[in-house]
């Protein structure tokens, strides 16, 4: 190899390496399905046994089998964001998560992934929330509580978005990799967005600088939900955090309600959960913005509420 040949090859290989950098665009695949058809159904259940409560709240909606089909790739997305214990009400209750995962498996799911983009160190959150242990205790290799892989955040163009035209999303949560996304948030106080419930839980599957979301938080949360479309939202209001959220830490700020809310309509689920705090659905900017985008129904008089 002479010098000219060497230089030519270096140029060719470097050009190839530059061109080969992957570019992701999954926008066409995650096209919005639009507003759920017909009147939104919403189930509410109360009870002390949280495992039985999941069963109870799902019954009027047709059970988990109405949402999870055989061989579905399922994502169960709880809130595992904080280095807090279950009774401190910063994360979704592990018993709720465990039962939801269990039901997905029973419905024939091929794979159930549980993950969150945590705020505190992921290992600490997964352990302290009890969720990792809860999922592992099922003892089924199809169900896995996994740490997010930093290389799996891909840029997505958000069609119809009003504020956030493009953002990074976690690949496994996108419709390309996931047949059924089940959102299992906890309802908590949050100073800036007033409350954090289901819509804001999408913050756990986005990459990049999450601080960006806070600049015009209500619209941006709604925009995120144009991409992340849960087939089912189960709001964990077994205990809610009234003050000093979303981190909590003081048991005096926790109110035990023993309540679960389930709906295929993410906006209706948030709207109903808001009333548990003695607030009106329209007080939450993200709910209003999401309803305007056609993501669901926020007028509870138009929602069919089933007390299970």
């Amino acid at each position: 190899m002479d010098r000219r040949e060497f230089l030519e090859q270096v140029a060719a290989w470097s050009a190839g390496a530059c061109v080969a950098t992957p570019v992701f665009n999954v926008s066409s695949i995650v096209a919005a399905e639009g507003k759920p058809q017909g009147a939104s159904l919403l189930a509410v259940a109360k009870g002390k046994d949280y495992a039985a409560l999941v069963e109870q709240v799902m019954k009027p909606l047709g059970g988990m089998a109405a949402f999870v089909k055989k061989d579905d790739r399922v994502v169960v997305k709880p809130n595992i964001g904080w280095d807090r214990t279950p009774e401190q009400a910063a994360n979704t209750h592990p018993d709720v998560v465990k039962t939801v995962v269990q039901q997905c498996l029973d419905a024939g799911a091929k794979r159930v992934l549980v993950f969150d983009r945590t705020v505190n160190d992921a290992r600490r959150c997964y352990v302290k929330s009890g969720i990792q242990a809860a999922v592992e205790s099922i003892g089924d290799s199809r169900a896995q509580c996994v740490f997010q892989d930093q290389s799996k955040f891909v840029p997505v163009q958000i069609e119809n978005a009003k504020s956030l035209k493009e953002f990074h999303f976690y690949q496994d949560a996108l419709a390309t990799e996931c047949d059924c996304y089940i959102n299992v948030p906890i309802a908590k106080h949050h100073c800036l967005s007033k409350l954090t419930i289901g819509l804001k839980n999408a913050m756990g599957v986005i990459g990049g600088n999450r601080g960006e979301i806070h600049k015009g938080i209500h619209q941006r949360i709604a925009d995120l939900n144009l991409v992340i479309r849960p087939k089912l939202t189960i709001v964990d209001a077994t205990r809610i955090l009234l003050r000093n959220g979303p981190t909590g830490g003081n048991l005096a700020d926790v109110k035990v309600l023993d309540t679960l809310i389930a709906s295929a309509d993410p906006v209706a689920a948030d709207a109903y959960a808001t009333t548990l705090f003695g607030m009106k659905p329209e007080e939450l900017g993200s709910t209003v913005a999401a309803a305007k985008l056609g993501l669901g129904e926020m007028d509870l008089s138009k929602v069919k509420i089933l007390n299970a």
Partner: peptide, 26 residues
Amino acid sequence: CLPWAKQTPCIRCEEMCPTPEKAIKI
């Protein structure tokens, strides 16, 4: 700080603050 310098809503610091009673007040 955005709310102070630009009158723009933010308070992400308050959201993150881990003390049981928030050390960042609003």
